[in-house]
């Protein structure tokens, strides 16, 4: 067979070029630890990676939301705890003042204490959260409870605040509108009232020397409402913890999936690289051998 000399060189050059390119690709994969440098390296894999990246970014945002919701729930729980303590004291006063042995001065002193408690309750109900907005204002950012000209305290907030998304369409109510906790408390006579009005009415009755014996039940009703709200917050906190664990677990699963698609099998790649380099070396050696053969060396 007739073998053109230039063809011999060209073939070896192409072969060595291809081997060098292969070694370079493998080396790149090892250096970046990524098998997919461009979508065309593995279109289906790239598509899956995009979806994984997307749900990863969503999960990061949702975990931040969970942290925010947790802090809001904790703040609500603390504020409600303070209100619980105050209302417990009010209940004690109701029981104490119910006994007929109290003098008018003592009743007046108790009424003054109740006034102070109302002020405290108002301050606590208007607590701001970490974001600087009222905790119990519902979907409004206005101060929720405002003392009116006639001394009564009115709710100025709005409806429920938006529920915070915590992943896969799940949402959580991180705050509760004060209207649901402190307002709409049914009195013994069946009429609805609010926490502030109950305590204020007690103070007024004490000042005028009236009987507050049955008012303890109304205070208890307000206290129950607050305790229930706290319990609900505790339950929501537990749910958030579950969601957080779920998202973290999903993150690990996602990382495993990503690694399976994208990461380089280091052992296999190093072996492949070594093989390519060995073949390249052999080709170079045979190249120098082949090209050193020439009949012209024997021409004298």
């Amino acid at each position: 067979m007739h073998v053109a000399t230039s063809l011999q060189y060209d073939r070896l050059r192409d072969r060595m070029g291809a081997l060098s390119a292969r070694a370079d690709t493998l080396n790149n994969q090892l250096a970046t630890n990524k098998r997919i440098a461009a979508p065309s390296d593995d279109a289906a894999g790239y598509r899956a990676l995009t979806a994984l990246r997307r749900s990863g970014a969503d999960a990061t945002a949702e975990l931040a939301n969970i942290d925010l919701a947790t802090s809001l729930l904790e703040a609500s729980s603390t504020a409600l705890g303070g209100i619980e303590t105050q209302l417990t004291r009010v209940r004690e006063i109701a029981i104490n003042a119910g006994s007929a042995t109290l003098s008018a001065e003592q009743k007046l002193a108790l009424a003054t204490e109740l006034d102070v408690i109302v002020d405290d309750l108002l301050r606590t109900a208007n607590t701001n959260d970490t974001r600087g907005n009222p905790l119990f204002g519902g979907d409004s950012t206005a101060t929720p409870y405002v003392r009116q000209a006639n001394g009564s305290i009115a709710f100025m907030g709005g409806g429920d605040a938006g529920e915070i998304p915590i992943g896969d369409g799940r949402t959580i109510n991180a705050t509760t509108s004060g209207e649901r906790i402190f307002n709409g408390i049914k009195l013994t006579d069946g009429t609805p009232s609010d926490m502030f009005a109950i305590v204020q009415k007690m103070a007024d009755t004490l000042r005028t020397g009236g009987n507050i014996a049955q008012m303890g039940t109304d205070v208890q009703a307000a206290l129950t409402s607050v305790t229930n709200a706290r319990a609900s917050i505790g339950a929501r906190g537990a749910r958030l913890e579950l969601e957080q664990t779920r998202l973290t677990d999903l993150g690990i699963t996602r990382e495993e999936a990503r690694s399976a698609i994208e990461d380089v099998d280091v052992t296999a790649t190093i072996t492949e690289l070594q093989k390519t380099l060995t073949v390249l070396q052999a080709t170079q050696a045979s190249f120098s051998k082949l090209t050193s053969l020439s009949l012209f060396d024997y021409l004298r």
């Binding site: 519902g138 979907d139 409004s140 709005g158 409806g159 938006g162 529920e163």
Partner: peptide, 8 residues
């Protein structure tokens, strides 16, 4: 119809 903290 929602307030400033609504996210509907």
């Amino acid at each position: 119809g929602e307030g400033p903290r609504g996210n509907g």
